[in-house]
Design a protein around this nucleic acid. Structure first.
Lengths: 195, 195
DNA sequence: TTGCAGTACTGAAAAAGTGCAGTAGTGTAA
DNA sequence: TTACACTACTGCACTTTTTCAGTACTGCAA
């Protein structure tokens, strides 16, 4: 009822302050002009604390809304009878809903639009997410991870993700989750042309 | 140039947060209805931390703008040739100027006006301030602390203090320091009626 | 009167955060 | 090239804050 203790809440607040400061500086000065010290000063935190939270400067900015562990535990929590694509839709929408609560989420999206060269930093993490999804769906269906159906399902779900994310304008309608659901609906309809 | 370190600044911020929360709750709920836990919750701090900063619930609210040590060191810092009343004026105005920077100072004044029964809590501290002033002025003049001139000077200065404080409406002109100076001017003029 | 709930407060241990000193890499100017 | 300044990052000692497990007091109801 009372939620997490004071310690947890303050910890999360610190993490959030660092992230917010980092993203804001990346946006206002450009990724190349930002130092750890500046982030720390803006976040009201010492450099040492910064590195207690993030392994690197980049990590503060690129910690994703969707982690491999999210995917694994999310898939595991869904009923086994569910269609794989429906499972991934549920997991992704659930994660994005949670991410929307993070004030820096929209900021980060805008940052990526403003400095597209930063997309490169995400490829590695995206690959990890994909692998997690492959493994999870494979385990659930009993198929091998390199089965065509499994691969296609995962690729398709991630494609819907990317499409929704790129169509999304943070802070304005429609919501990212709405867009993602629309994309998934289109997939469900077999990519029927929308008339 | 860079001022106190991050640690010192955060410490002061915590102290201030506790004081602000305590005074605000005293004002909004009345002194009797406030618990330490409520103050802590509002200040975003654990109960233990509260007691690391203040010996008691009351101490958070009644920590004075003018402490005995302030008086002692303040007087010692003034030139020995100065008239005792001028010394006390300087010390008091200097302290009140500093206190005005404290956002809770006006709040506390209003609290005392709203709950006059709280004045009683201040008598002990006021006595300590008076003693400090007596000792300091006595030491400076070479007179005994119970000398009439010394006593009168201290009592008079404190009276000016009280008068200014009670005439003052926090947040509006004239400033507390201005009022104190006016009171001291009147004393300097030998309590000439203001025409 | 007894028991109980709530509040003030304390001590000790663990966690979070800071300061410092130092290593390593990188760009830049002489 | 060398030298120097700046930045990223680490290890360690230290301080601050939280958590937990208490004791003591106070008002209130059975």
């Amino acid at each position: 009822m009372t939620g997490p203790g004071l310690r947890e809440r303050k910890k999360e607040a610190t993490r959030q302050a660092i992230r917010a400061a980092a993203v804001a500086l990346y946006r206002s000065r450009g990724p190349h002009e930002v130092t750890v010290d500046q982030i720390c000063e803006k976040a009201g935190v010492s450099a040492r604390t910064f590195f207690n939270y993030f392994d690197s400067k980049e990590a503060a900015v690129f910690s994703l809304a969707l982690t491999p562990d999210d995917v694994r535990s999310g898939v595991a929590a869904r009923p086994a009878s569910e269609r794989p694509l429906a499972t991934l839709r549920a997991v992704f929408t659930e994660r994005f809903t949670a991410a929307s609560a993070d004030p820096t989420f929209g900021e980060r999206a805008l940052m990526l639009r403003e400095y597209p060269e930063l997309w490169g930093r995400l490829t590695h993490v995206n690959k990890l997410v994909e692998e997690a999804a492959l493994e999870s769906i494979a385990a659930r269906t009993g198929l091998p991870a390199d089965d065509l159906y499994v691969r296609l399902t995962v690729e398709t779900a991630l494609a819907a993700n990317r499409a929704a994310f790129k169509c999304w304008y943070p802070g304005s309608d429609p919501d990212l989750v709405v867009l993602l659901n629309q994309a998934m609906d289109i997939l469900d309809s077999g990519l029927e042309p929308p008339m």
